[in-house]
Each structure stands twice: as C-alpha cells, then as structure tokens.
Design a protein around this nucleic acid. Structure first.
Length: 372
DNA sequence: TACCCGTGGAT
DNA sequence: TATCCAAGGGT
C-alpha cells in the first residue's frame, strides 16, 4: 500500500463514488449494454473528444457497423468516411485493424486479459482498463484526464499530469483504490465526476459526493490542482492549393500518404509556399511536376485555415483549368470527381471547407463553379 | 520523453 | 481573441 493512501478511507470512498454514479450517471448510447465491441468503439471515439461530439458519430457508426464482423469486413475507405470530421484518423484505421485481428486470432471474441487486449492496435493502458472494467467487470484501472484531475485533488497529488510517468503512479494507486465489487461503476464514476462536478475550472465541490474525502478541498487548493505543464504553440505553415477543373467540370483530388498527418484522406493538390515566391507560378510548376498537367492557374478564391493541435495551415486557394479531360498517371492516387462522387471520399475539415466555399452544384447532373 | 496526431466547444 | 482542453495512443 502506497504511503499516499495512508489514512484514506478507501471503502467509504468507493461506496460514496459508486452510489453517486448509480444515481447520477448520464444515459449515453454506449451505456445501453456491456457488449465489449460497443464499449470498445465508444472508448476509441471518446479519446480526446467530447461526449456531445461523439454521440452522433457513435450512433451512425453503430448503424453502419453494428457488429465486430461488419466492421472487420468493411472497406477501409468506408470506415474513414464514417470518421470524417472526428479527427485523429489513425484511431479509425487502428480500430478496424484491431477488430480484424480479433476476428482472425480470437474467434471474434474481444480478449479479456490486459496482456492480450493491450496487443491490439490503438488499445493503450486507458482503453484496455476501460474495456476490461466496463465490459468484463475486472478491477483494472482506467486512467484518463478526468481520473488524474479528480485524484490529484482528492489525494492532493502535485505531480505533473502531462508526464506519462504520472499516469503510471495513478494506475498503481488505483489497484488499491478501485472497488473490487463494482469496478465498472467505480471507474465510470471517477470519469463522470470529473466531467460533471470535478471540472477543470470552478469545480462544483458543494455538490461533490466525495468532498469529505478530498484533501485539496480541505486545504482550499482544489482550483490549483492538477498541476499540468503548458503546451507549446502550434507552428504556422503557409500552403497554396488548387481547385483544378477539366472541361467536363470535374475537379482533381488526390490521396494523402498512408502515414502521418491526415493519412489516407483526400485533398486538393497543394504545396507549401515560401513567402518570397509567386503563388500562381509555384502552383503551376507543382501541378506540372506532379501530375504532368499543363494547368492555367487563375484567380485567388479564398483562404482556409486549419488548426491542428501542433500545427496551423493557412491555405490560399486558387482556381485552375486544364484542357480536355486528361488521364492521370498512376504514380499518385488521384481522381477527377464531380458532385455525385465527391461525397464518397473522406476529406479533412480544411478541404471540406474548400468544397463548401468554392464549389457548388451548377445543375443536377455535373460540375462545380466558383462562388462569389 | 517529447512530440506527433484533429476538432470544436468552453472560458 | 487566445488559450485550454476532451473518456489517449504511437513512435
């Protein structure tokens, strides 16, 4: 038993937390049952993503891929399309890869040991503990940002929660702290408390079911905890993009690389611009080099900003045209698309904005045109 | 370990 | 407006 838990009334804390969760939990789509697949999908979607954002995606995803098998046998592009706009797209590719692994190596049954489930792509320490406790009632810790915030306050811990090592400290404490009778409600209770009461700013201590256990409240320092190192500012990057139209009114899109930022999503051809250079010239050269197309780069249309957690794109969009309907070399994956087929491709948000801002249907059969 | 990997809502 | 951040994982 850690020194931190000396003089801490574990059993009463467990009871107060589990009782509160039993009476106050939100009814959410992934709480309808304990199907490990449903719990799994929800935990992946909820990574770094708010509940209100996830709900509609989760419901649509479950209609489209109701079982582990339907997801395993789906086309990857359909999974990415279902994830479009949710962000962190490697989650979607890793989830499908892991689901296929479960079908092939575990007979379609989600493994129920930490050792095995942790081998699955995209299942880290938190997600493993969440699935094991919620779907399989195992007393395994599930340490997310909520849990670290709540326990930093309750136990008055001043370690920097931005450090990975601090998470392991909480995990070791939780093996002693977690309710062995109801690990599911205990873990969900910690997270629900963090989401609804023990919030980052102005925590609702007067409503808190474990206030009597809380060392930070007793000391009046709940607003000063948890300790968290500040993030660095994202770096800005200037891009120029082309909406290249052929004589059938179709536009050219290309697929991003298999790894890295926005992997496997589609986009309009674009290139980084060094500030001193002429945008139209650079774009025309780039299109010629990459696609062997002689494009007439025309008017500047608009600017789209795309803010990532670590990067900011400022994209200046230009119109361009090519004669005829040139065939595309197969060195890069690219397509001519019209308004009927563009909906089948998954785009990052910045390029959805380009579509919405610059391309609109001109009739009910084919073609786009510039707005404004 | 520190950095990469999205997005949109809250303050 | 700027900053933070929300049920993290991979490398």
């Amino acid at each position: 038993m850690s020194k931190i838990l000396q003089d801490f009334d574990i059993s009463t804390f467990q009871n107060d937390l589990v009782t509160w969760f039993s009476n106050h939990y939100r009814e959410l789509p992934w709480r309808e049952n304990k199907d490990p697949y449903r719990v799994w999908v929800s935990e992946i979607m909820l990574q770094q993503t708010r509940v209100d954002t996830v709900i509609p995606y989760y419901q649509a995803f479950m209609r489209q891929f109701p079982t582990l098998e339907t997801l395993a046998y789906a086309e990857e592009d359909q999974v990415l399309k279902a994830w479009e706009g949710l962000g962190y797209y490697s989650r979607a590719r890793n989830l499908q890869s892991a689901v296929r692994e479960v079908v092939e190596s575990y007979g379609g049954e989600v493994p129920s040991t930490r050792k095995e489930i942790s081998k699955l792509k995209g299942v880290g320490p938190y997600t493993a503990g969440a699935i094991l406790s919620i779907a399989y009632d195992q007393p395994e810790p599930a340490v997310d940002g909520n849990v670290m915030r709540v326990l930093s306050r309750v136990l008055y811990i001043e370690e920097d929660i931005a450090k990975v090592k601090t998470r392991t400290l909480f995990e070791s404490l939780l093996y002693d702290l977690i309710s062995k009778e109801n690990p599911s409600f205990f873990n969900q209770g910690l997270m629900e408390l963090g989401a609804l009461v023990c919030t980052p700013t102005s925590p609702g201590c007067l409503l808190c079911p474990v206030r009597d256990h809380c060392r930070a409240f007793a000391a009046g320092v709940q607003e000063q905890l948890p300790i968290k190192a500040k993030k660095k500012k994202p770096k800005a990057k200037q891009l120029i993009a082309a909406v290249i139209r052929n004589e059938k009114g179709q536009v050219l899109i290309e697929r991003r690389p298999e790894k890295g930022l926005l992997a496997k999503l589609w986009q309009f051809p674009n290139v980084e611009l060094e500030s001193t250079k002429n945008a139209q010239q650079v774009l025309g050269d780039y299109i010629h080099e990459r696609f062997h197309l002689d494009a007439a780069v025309g008017e500047y249309v608009q600017t789209v900003e795309h803010v990532f957690s670590h990067l900011i794109w400022n994209i200046r969009v230009y119109e361009a045209t090519v004669k005829g309907v040139p065939s595309l070399n197969d060195k890069y994956e690219a397509d001519w698309v019209d308004d009927r087929t563009i909906e089948n491709y998954a785009f990052p948000v910045s390029h959805q904005k380009i579509i919405q801002g610059n391309l609109r249907k001109v009739d009910d059969t084919i073609g786009f045109t510039a707005e404004g």
